[in-house]
Design a protein around this nucleic acid. Structure first.
Ligand SMILES: [Mn+2]
Ligand SMILES: [Mn+2]
Ligand SMILES: [Mn+2]
Ligand SMILES: [Mn+2]
Lengths: 159, 159
DNA sequence: TGCAACATGTAGCTCAGGCTACATCATCCG
DNA sequence: CGGATGATGTAGCCTGAGCTACATGTTGCA
C-alpha cells in the first residue's frame, strides 16, 4: 500500500489498457449524447402524435414517454427555451423547423438501428426496446456503416 | 384547434404508430439503464487501474473518466453506500465481490460491443467511442445475438 | 527532518429530470 | 347552461452528476 504517485502513470502504459485520454473523451462524448437524448425522444414523440392524431398534447406525451404530466410540462418549457417547440398555455405542442429536423433525423436513426438489430437476429420486441437507448449513441460514421451493411444484405441473394 | 380529448386515443390506434405503452416501457428501461451506467463505468475503470498499476486512486480515476476529482470522490461514496467498493480516507479504492462481478460483466459486454461494431466495418476509434455509450443499452438477448453472429463469422470461411 | 507538491476532502453552487399534492382552466354533455 | 371531469399548471420536494474554490493530509526528497 505504498504510494506510487505519478509512478503509476508510467506503469500504466506498459499494459494493453486504453490510454486514459482516449477513454475520457469517449465518456465525455457519451455524456454529451445523454444531454440531447430527451430532446430527441420528445421531438420524435411529438412528430408521431401529430402525424397520428393531428396534435400533440401534454397528457398523450406523458403516457407515451412513461413520465408524469408535470415532467412533460417542465421539459417542454425547456425545449421551447431551446427553440425546438412552440406552445401556449392550455394548448397543444408544435415542433419548430429546427424541432422538425431533429424529429426526422431521430426517426430515421431509430428505424435504422432497429433494422440493424433485426438483421442480426435480435427478436423484434427486444430490438424495439434496446434501440430506444442505443440510438442516441450511434455516431454518423456508425450509422453509415449500418446502412452499407443493410444494403449489402438486401442486395446479396442469401441462401 | 378543437379539443378531441380522449377521442385521440382511438384515432391513434389506426396508424402504424407504436402503441404508447410499448414505447413508454422501452423508455423506462432506458432510464433504468442510465441509472446503472455510472456504476458500470466506474467498476470497469477501477478494475483496469488495479490490474495495470496495482491500485485505483481518485485522481487516476478522474483523469480516466474525464471528470473532476470531486465528482469521483462523491460518486465513489455512493458506490460504497451501494456495496460496490470499499475505501478509506486518503487511501485507494477497492472493488467488493459484487463490484468485481459488475466490472467483469461490464468488461465482457464492452468488448463484445466493440467487436460487433468492428465486424460490421466501423473504424476502430469510432467503435471504441460509440461502444462506451451503446454498451449500457444492450440487453442479454441482444448480447447473445452478437455472440452468435461473431462466432458464425469466425467459423465461416469468408472469401 | 521538514516542507513543497500533490492527493484527498469539504462547502456550496448549477442543472436535468424525476416525483406528489394541490390549484386552476376548458369543455362536453346532461 | 352549469357542473363534473379531465387537461394543464404550480409549489415544492428529491437525487444524480457535474463544477470551482478552498482546506486539509501525506509523503518523497532536498
Ligand atoms: Mn430513445
Ligand atoms: Mn426513439
Ligand atoms: Mn445512454
Ligand atoms: Mn460506458
Amino acid at each position: 500500500m505504498s504510494r506510487p504517485a505519478q509512478r503509476a502513470k508510467t506503469a500504466a502504459r506498459s499494459g494493453k489498457t486504453r490510454p486514459a485520454e482516449v477513454q475520457a473523451s469517449a465518456l465525455r462524448q457519451t455524456r454529451r449524447e445523454h444531454a440531447n437524448e430527451t430532446a430527441e425522444d420528445y421531438a420524435e414523440a411529438i412528430a408521431e402524435l401529430t402525424a397520428a392524431t393531428g396534435e400533440a398534447r401534454a397528457t398523450d406525451l406523458a403516457r407515451r414517454l412513461g413520465v408524469s404530466h408535470v415532467t412533460v410540462i417542465r421539459t417542454v418549457a425547456r425545449l421551447q427555451r431551446n427553440g425546438l417547440v412552440t406552445t401556449r398555455p392550455y394548448r397543444s405542442i408544435f415542433l419548430t423547423e429546427k424541432g422538425t429536423r431533429l424529429a426526422e433525423a431521430s426517426r430515421q436513426r431509430h428505424e435504422l438501428v432497429v433494422e440493424m438489430l433485426r438483421a442480426l437476429g435480435v427478436p423484434e420486441a427486444v430490438a424495439q426496446s434496446d434501440a430506444e437507448g442505443i440510438e442516441h449513441h450511434v455516431s454518423p460514421e456508425t450509422l453509415a456503416t449500418f446502412q452499407r451493411f443493410l444494403h449489402r444484405q438486401a442486395g446479396t441473394p442469401q441462401k
